[in-house]
């Protein structure tokens, strides 16, 4: 049933402008970040790591939270318009699975956004003739952990978008969440706040350092948050009035 619901969510996204944005959005920091890297090559001497910082520093703090906010608001938009909740909630499917299907769809979009960011990093590095060996394992970790942290954010944003009919308001909240994440990161509490986990996992500010607390606690915290918010989202959807 869950797979069929995921397929239904994918059909809703067919030919949507989300995909154009998904292609275009990461190209901007890739191009401008690479130009900035070339302009400051004397200071930025850690090759791939410095380039990753240039590509992702603003992306992870401000723009990926906004993008996730848009993804989640868009995924809920069809239900929010024209009383479509009536159809969705009267379908003979477990309501909690509807929430889960939406979360998996959002996560899939976040994951491919992260992979695209990683691919653009490699392309940019090759174009500017970077000589150091490609830190493939690190790139994989940044992208996967970024996606995991992004999934936490998406689970919160889906709940917000489920209750707020407006398309714009949840995105504003997402931006505020991203800023709050920045504050938590500055206070060394990035590993416990749902809105800072993505930037924390992507290591934009210090890509050469491993996560201080280690990878396992980070994964456990993310999974705990995802489970909590998914249960909350599923329960709230079960109780949602027509």
């Amino acid at each position: 049933m869950l797979l069929r619901l995921i397929r239904a969510e994918r059909m809703k996204l067919k030919r949507s402008p989300v995909w154009i944005a998904f292609i275009l959005m990461p190209i901007v920091p890739a191009v401008l970040g690479t130009i900035n890297y070339l302009g400051n090559i004397e200071i930025l001497d850690s090759e791939w790591y410095s380039l990753w910082t240039q590509h992702t520093i603003f992306t992870s703090y401000f723009f990926l939270p906004i993008i996730i906010g848009i993804y989640c608001a868009y995924i809920m938009r069809l239900e929010q318009s024209n009383h479509n909740w009536n159809k969705t909630l009267t379908m003979p499917v477990p309501k909690s699975e509807i929430f889960l299907a939406k979360l998996i769809t959002a996560t899939f979009m976040i994951l491919i956004s992260e992979i695209w960011i990683g691919v653009l990093l490699v392309i940019s590095g090759k174009i500017i003739g970077m000589t150091a060996a490609l830190p493939f394992k690190d790139i994989m970790i940044w992208c996967l952990f970024g996606s995991l942290g992004g999934m936490v954010m998406a689970s919160v944003q889906l709940i917000i978008s489920m209750f707020i009919k407006s398309f714009a308001l949840p995105i504003g909240i997402s931006l505020a969440g991203g800023i709050s994440g920045l504050v938590f990161l500055a206070k060394n509490l990035g590993h416990i706040w749902p809105y800072s986990l993505m930037a924390y996992g992507m290591r934009s500010n210090s890509p050469q350092q491993m996560i201080e607390s280690g990878y396992l606690p980070y994964v456990i915290i993310c999974i705990t948050y995802i489970a909590l918010f998914s249960i909350a989202g599923g329960t709230l959807m079960n109780r949602k009035e027509l």
């Binding site: 949507s16 402008p17 989300v18 154009i20 944005a21 275009l24 959005m25 901007v28 920091p29 401008l32 970040g33 130009i35 900035n36 302009g39 603003f58 992306t59 401000f62 723009f63 906004i66 993008i67 848009i70 608001a73 868009y74 938009r77 398309f167 714009a168 995105i171």
Partner: peptide, 26 residues
Amino acid sequence: KNQAVSFFTGAIGTFIGVFSMFLPQL
């Protein structure tokens, strides 16, 4: 009608705008 268009245009534009402040060469 689809406000995602407006949001994505704004988000991409803001992105370029913020980056442009760090690129004195452009």
